[in-house]
């Protein structure tokens, strides 16, 4: 049963990720990416990370992708890149490098995974808000504070960039 759920999620994630880079209209890419993110959230939930799954849906699908949708709908960009598409030398090189990189990555990650010491089971509250918050506010307190400062800087920067005139 769990196998079946995993394969559905995996096929959904990979197929819609392929669709993101193959669609010729940006709007379709954005909608495909939403499907990918939801499938990844599904896999987070199955990997005993329920809090991350919820945050993935709220933050990624609810905030970031809505931002993408707004920008895509705001910009009137008539020519699609496929209309002027010429697979030149640079494009082929890029594709070759990327495919080679993917092969190498699969090899390296396989090796790293076989070297990792594994535990059979995890405690039932693994990845819950309580356990994650406990780690977050003790061991990682300084990064949390710094993230707050980063968010503040981003808010100021975006307000400055998006044209508040003097």
């Amino acid at each position: 049963m769990e196998n079946l759920f995993f394969y559905i999620a995996a096929i959904l994630a990979v197929a819609s990720a392929g669709s993101v880079i193959l669609q010729r209209k940006v709007m379709y890419s954005v909608l495909s990416l939403i499907v990918t993110l939801l499938a990844v959230a599904w896999m987070y939930a199955m990997l005993s990370a329920p809090f991350l799954a919820v945050v993935q849906v709220i933050l990624y699908v609810g905030a970031i992708m809505v931002l993408f949708l707004f920008v895509v709908m705001m910009l009137k960009y008539e020519k699609t890149e496929i209309q002027r598409f010429r697979p030149g030398l640079l494009w082929c090189t890029g594709l070759l490098v990327a495919v080679f990189f993917l092969m190498k990555l699969i090899y390296v990650v396989n090796r790293a995974s076989s070297l990792t010491p594994k535990v059979a089971t995890v405690p039932p509250d693994f990845g819950s808000i309580k356990s994650l918050g406990g780690v977050l506010y003790t061991q990682y307190l300084l990064p949390v504070e710094l993230t707050g400062i980063l968010l503040l800087v981003a808010v100021v920067g975006v307000a400055l960039l998006s044209g508040i005139k003097k």
Partner: peptide, 24 residues
């Protein structure tokens, strides 16, 4: 799951090196 993550990363790299629309 690890392999799915790797494949997603690889698809991202392929798209990044082959597409030209900045939003993509």
């Amino acid at each position: 799951y690890l392999m799915v993550g790797v494949v997603l990363f690889g698809i991202g790299v392929i798209g990044f090196l082959t597409r030209r629309n900045v939003i993509v």
